[in-house]
Amino acid sequence: MAKFEELIKASLLACTMLSVLVTGLIVLSVFSETLRFFSHVPLADFFFGTEWSPQTAMRTDQAGSSGTFGAVPIFMGTFLVTLIAMAVAAPLGLYAAIFLSVYASAGFRAWAKPVLEILAGVPSVVYGYFAVITLAPILRAGGDMIGLSIASESALTAGTVMGIMITPYVMSLSEDVISSVPKSLSFGSLAIGATQSETIKKVILPAALPGIVSALLLGVSRGVGETMVVVMAAGLAANLTLNPLESVTTATVQIVTLLVGDHEFDSDKTLAAFALGFSLFFMTLLLNIAALIIVKRYREQYD
């Protein structure tokens, strides 16, 4: 009997180890390919180079066959699209969370929240389709009207749609945070004659700030790692620009273009995708850990 107990425990432990192995595998596999990439391409070229044209690496007979792998335009593009996304998601998500948790009646909240959470459940490929078919033409037409030329694969299109995709995520995270601020605090403020908005701005938000920062960080981490929306709505050309009306590319877009339909895994071109993937993994890991630490401190404050 005791043996049987031990057996079950051991097999459970084995499963746990296997699950943990996944992280190890990610780091190992992606990291080893990244190391191989950096044995061909100098680290400084990748992180500080401003020219990205991996396609030349295909023609091995040509001079300069190694291609150029300056990832700055890609990181800039990722940054730009995420920034636009957060410019949409942060105010929308925060204000929606505030309205739902403070102003909305219980009846309104009961149906509005699940409806908004549908937005979070829609697969990202659907958002991508929406960006291409609907939003891009609308933005272009709008731009024409006021005399701006907006690229059909502009950072603005991809960022806006991505922002709306992240909004419910930011909303439900910040709503949790706001409702975890003790009610007594807001009553204390309301009872001496503050309006709801003054209470929110001067008491609730300062108290909930760490939680909200971590919600925004998680939103950024989502945006940085989001793939389908940008693959469909953002461009391929690595333009080094901060103009949201132009086309930019992102790390995820490059990973997809470099790897899809390619059966050769030893060229610098495919290895570059792993280097990008590793940077992406590292970035989101930092964001997540930062968010976790902040929110943990915050929880301790009120528990």
Binding site: P182, L185, G188, A191, I192, V203, P206, A207
Partner: peptide, 13 residues
């Protein structure tokens, strides 16, 4: 008409 509550609730300021 001000109010004081059961549990002390100073603002985190």
């Amino acid at each position: 008409v001000g109010m004081v509550f059961q549990k002390p609730n100073p603002f985190p300021k």
